[in-house]
Structures are given as structure tokens and as C-alpha cells.
């Protein structure tokens, strides 16, 4: 297991009478993409901003790269890159001017031209910020977060409001950051995003951390059930397959049959049984629970936009 680069223990943060974050403890390891997931208002951003040193925690201990985010703020800023939710820049700042300014603030920087090229912004060097599309703005913010080659990158809701193509392009970039050996700490309320990107996730709701682990482990622990759905015109097929390993029960609706079950051998068992019984199958698919199902189960409600 890699070393922890971020350690948060018993973090608490209140705004007046509102408890935004309550007793949150977590650990982000070197070289992973760690996602803080939960609905809007759950306390994700507050947690992240305490870790970045932008907010002072009421209680708890935070360590990032062995530094205290508030006390060692200036040393830490040289080593972390941040992107904020709903951030903007000056309307009429040019892309290269922003990159230039940011680059001038850090002791060590990567080559700006190559960075812009990697983020697909080389053609937008002279464009004003206000003329960029949503996806281009977010890519510029990623560039600003990466200009000083930081060890840890913080990304807060970076694909909110983007169309699916732009979102996928950003996902590829984030994976690329991890593949260059950086640690990524992100927040998202999109379960699909968390499942695609994150090596590990923590689910937070009403300021409390309710579960943490790899997406696959969380699904296996909380939603182990699988479904095989197939269509067949052979009579009584569901009946003939219900003794296959792992099958709990079967339902039939017209020519569509659904087998519910769990376990590693569940799907394989059904495939074997279908072959053995020589059942003629016209369509066949498996349905696996997702992080969204886990969230639904743990919180009793779906994620809200």
C-alpha cells in the first residue's frame, strides 16, 4: 500500500449554527485518484477547502505532504494544485496571460506550451477567458493547477455543467495526471464519474463520512446482487435455469426472463446452464449494480442535482 499523502482525522467545520462537516476522517494515498462523493451541500467542498488550507477547521487534524495546511500554507501552495468549483477568471484575461501570471508565482514550472498542447488549448492562447467554452475554461483551470508540477492536485466538481463529450475529455486528462505519478483528490456528485475515475471513494452526506473504499468493493459489499436478463421463445426457460449456481429467484415477463442472484459464479453458471439445456437465446445481458445503487442503499435516497 502506498504512503498516505493526505491525512484527515476528526475534521469538524461549522458555519454559524450549521454543521458543514462533522467528524470526517480519511486518508488519500500517493498516486491514487481519491473521490469525495455525495450530493450538493453534503460537505465535500468544505472538506476539500480545509485540506487545501483555504478554510480553518474548527476541530481535527489535517496533514498534506506532512504539512499543516494553515500553518505551512505558503510551503504547501508550491506543492499542491487546486481547481475550484464554479471558478472564473477576469473576463478579458487571455489564456497565455493567465498561464504566464501563474507560472511567475511558482519556483518551478513545467513548459507552458507543452501543457497547453496536452490540454488541447494551444489554439486558444490569445483568446479572452470570456470567449472560452465551459470545457475549455475547465481545461484552463486544470492547466493552472498543473503549471507548477504539483504533487497533489485538487479538483472540485470539475465536470459539472459540461456536455458528455467535454466530460469524457476531462476524465481522460485526470487519468493522465494520475498516470504521471500525481495524487488526485476530487469531489463529484456524479456517481458515474466517480466510478470511472476513482481508485477509492468516500461517501459523505450531511457532513458525515458514511463509507469508504474502492468502487468495486463498495458495490460488492453493499449491493452484491446481479441480474441476468435474456429473451427467449423457448417455453419454461426460467424454470429450467433456476437451479444454476447463485440464482435466487427468477421472473418472467412475456419472452423476457430475469434471473436474480449473487456470487462470482452466478453469470458463468447461467451461461453453462443455457448451453447445457440448449436454450435458444435471442438476447442476453447482465445487470451489475453501480456506485449509484450503493449510494441509494446507504442513504435511502438517490443523488440530487
Amino acid at each position: 500500500m502506498s504512503a498516505a499523502v493526505i491525512t484527515v482525522s476528526h475534521l469538524r467545520k461549522t458555519y454559524g449554527a450549521t454543521v458543514a462537516v462533522d467528524d470526517v476522517s480519511l486518508e488519500v494515498r500517493e498516486g491514487e485518484i481519491f473521490g469525495l462523493i455525495g450530493p450538493n451541500g453534503a460537505g465535500k467542498t468544505t472538506t476539500m477547502e480545509c485540506v487545501e488550507g483555504l478554510r480553518r477547521a474548527d476541530r481535527g487534524i489535517i496533514s498534506v505532504l506532512g504539512l499543516d495546511p494553515v500553518r505551512d500554507a505558503s510551503a504547501l501552495r508550491q506543492r499542491i494544485g487546486v481547481q475550484h468549483q464554479d471558478a472564473h477568471l477576469q473576463k478579458r484575461i487571455k489564456v497565455w496571460e493567465a498561464i504566464d501570471l501563474w507560472a511567475s508565482l511558482y519556483g518551478r514550472t513545467v513548459e507552458a506550451g507543452a501543457l497547453l498542447a496536452r490540454l488541447g488549448l494551444e489554439g486558444k492562447r490569445d483568446a479572452w477567458f470570456m470567449t472560452l467554452s465551459g470545457g475549455q475554461k475547465q481545461r484552463l483551470f486544470i492547466a493552472l493547477a498543473l503549471i507548477h508540477d504539483p504533487e497533489v492536485v485538487f479538483l472540485d466538481e470539475l465536470t459539472t455543467g459540461l456536455d458528455p463529450q467535454a466530460r469524457r475529455a476531462i476524465w481522460a486528462l485526470v487519468t493522465g495526471i494520475r498516470d504521471r505519478g500525481k495524487t488526485v483528490f476530487l469531489t463529484t456528485h456524479l456517481m458515474e464519474e466517480a466510478e470511472r475515475l476513482c481508485d477509492r471513494v468516500a461517501i459523505i452526506e450531511h457532513g458525515r463520512l458514511i463509507e469508504m473504499g474502492t468502487p468495486a468493493d463498495l458495490v460488492a459489499t453493499h449491493c452484491p446482487e446481479r441480474r441476468v436478463v435474456f429473451t427467449s421463445d423457448s417455453p419454461g426457460v426460467a424454470e429450467r435455469l433456476k437451479d444454476a449456481p447463485g440464482v435466487r429467484h427468477a421472473t418472467t415477463e412475456g419472452q423476457t426472463h430475469t434471473l436474480h442472484g449473487e456470487g462470482d459464479d452466478f453469470v458463468t453458471g447461467i451461461i453453462h446452464a443455457v448451453a447445457r439445456e440448449s436454450i435458444h437465446v435471442r438476447g442476453f445481458r447482465t445487470e451489475v449494480p453501480t456506485l449509484e445503487d450503493v449510494f441509494l442503499k446507504l442513504t435511502g435516497h438517490g443523488i440530487r442535482d
Binding site: 508550491q78 471558478a87 477568471l89
Partner: peptide
């Protein structure tokens, strides 16, 4: 405008 747009916040997260 800079405050509302989060520009001040973004600048503040730099070494400035």
C-alpha cells in the same frame, strides 16, 4: 465582480 465570480478566491489559492 471578482468576489462574486470566485476570482478573488482563485487568486488567493496561489502563492500571492
Amino acid at each position: 465582480i471578482y468576489r462574486e465570480g470566485g476570482i478573488l478566491k482563485r487568486l488567493r489559492a496561489t502563492p500571492l
